[in-house]
Design a protein around this nucleic acid. Structure first.
Length: 364
DNA sequence: AAACCGGGGTG
DNA sequence: CACCCAGGTTT
């Protein structure tokens, strides 16, 4: 750092107070529950999306006790559409851990938070800095980019671990708690609004005076070559709708895509669809109508939702027989009851939209 | 259509 | 330590 200039830390604190974001619903509080929830939701999820869920989740689970008391299904329902449902399971597990093992009191430092399920290095540092003013540095993707550009780190110096050591070294020995919070928020805001991946707004940056990338001495190393995306075999999901509107949903396994959510059976590849057609012709379920399929894309998988209207002569506890059907883990649900479950985004979107509204067209 | 991203699990 | 995975959204 050049002499006569405020430190990296001081410049970021001043910049955050003048130019940073101050209007996010989880700011302006040191309540660990609110900060913790926001950090978990913000993992892999953009601010704009989290904003739509955060207040509603808090309204439903007002504190850690309420969250710990709630059945997992209700937590998954509130999380439905946010994706990465494992986060919701770990959040729920951590809430129970706080209530049962910590007497309902949250941890008060980095190590304590780091020991909770779903809280890794970056999240633990963010909470410790925001709630406790602890001098620990975050290192999410935005911050890594800021530090790498500013320091000019490359090669072995640019690994996450090395960058984190560098970030720690930039902290003053005993920063005031409120400065630590502003600094942490400032790092995030700078990466999100100024030091963006493409077309950074360098003229607005408080660090440009001694930024290695800005000086051109050490241009940002090109991103490591990413492996070609492997696209797994497509999934076909038969969404059975009975004449009375009920639909068959079964619980997903605890791991993998849509872990723990309620979803239609999964058929892999096109063979599954053919077997399903054959089964439906001879079962108590008869396909009255196949509606146009709905497409949904995950990064590594293409999904097709088949909507099949059924005439169902079997018992209420039974399910159509077919590939991928797990009767012991499934049930018929009315649309309104299903909406209270944890549902994958495409199923929820279909139910909340037009949904099964056209079900009576063939029966009257 | 490809890329993004932090925690957790595995090799 | 290095890699792999999940999934709604942006580019």
């Amino acid at each position: 750092m050049s002499a006569g200039q405020p430190s990296f830390f001081e410049r970021l604190v001043a910049w955050q107070r003048a130019c940073g974001r101050h209007d996010l619903p989880w700011q302006g509080t040191r309540d660990p529950y609110r900060v913790w929830l926001s950090e978990i939701m913000l993992q892999q999820t953009q601010v704009a999306t989290v904003r739509r869920y955060y207040e509603a989740f808090l309204a439903r689970f007002a504190d850690v006790q309420a969250l710990a008391r709630a059945p997992l299904d209700e937590v998954l329902a509130a999380w439905s559409g946010l994706g990465y449902y494992r986060r919701a399971r770990l959040l729920h597990a951590a809430a129970r851990q706080v209530v049962e093992r910590l007497g309902g009191r949250f941890p008060h430092d980095f190590d304590g938070w780091r020991a909770l399920p779903g809280v890794g290095d970056s999240t633990a540092a963010a909470i410790a800095a925001f709630c406790h003013g602890q001098p620990v540095s975050i290192l999410d993707g935005n911050v890594r980019r800021v530090l790498q550009r500013w320091s000019g780190a490359a090669g072995a110096e640019a690994t996450p671990r090395a960058l984190w050591r560098r970030a720690q070294a930039l902290l003053p020995p005993q920063p005031p708690a409120e400065a630590m919070a502003a600094y942490t928020q400032g790092l995030m805001d700078l990466g999100a609004t100024v030091c963006t991946p493409r077309q950074p707004r360098c003229p607005a940056c408080p660090l440009r005076a001694d930024c290695a990338a800005h000086a051109g001495a050490a241009p940002l190393a090109s991103a490591p070559p990413r492996r070609a995306a492997r696209r797994a075999e497509a999934w076909w999901l038969p969404l059975w709708v009975r004449a009375d509107g009920a639909l068959w949903l079964q619980r997903r396994p605890a791991r993998g895509i849509w872990a723990g959510l309620w979803a239609p059976p999964v058929l892999v590849g096109t063979e599954g669809e053919q077997a399903l057609r054959a089964a439906l012709a001879t079962q108590p379920a008869q396909a009255l109508r196949w509606l146009p399929p709905l497409a949904h894309a995950l990064t590594h998988r293409d999904l097709t939702l088949h909507r099949v209207q059924l005439r169902w002569d079997g018992p209420d506890e039974a399910a159509p027989d077919g590939p991928g059907v797990q009767p012991d883990q499934g049930a018929w649900w009315t649309p309104s009851a299903a909406l209270a479950l944890g549902l994958p985004a495409p199923v929820r979107a279909w139910l909340a939209g037009a949904g099964p509204a056209s079900r009576t067209s063939s029966s009257r």
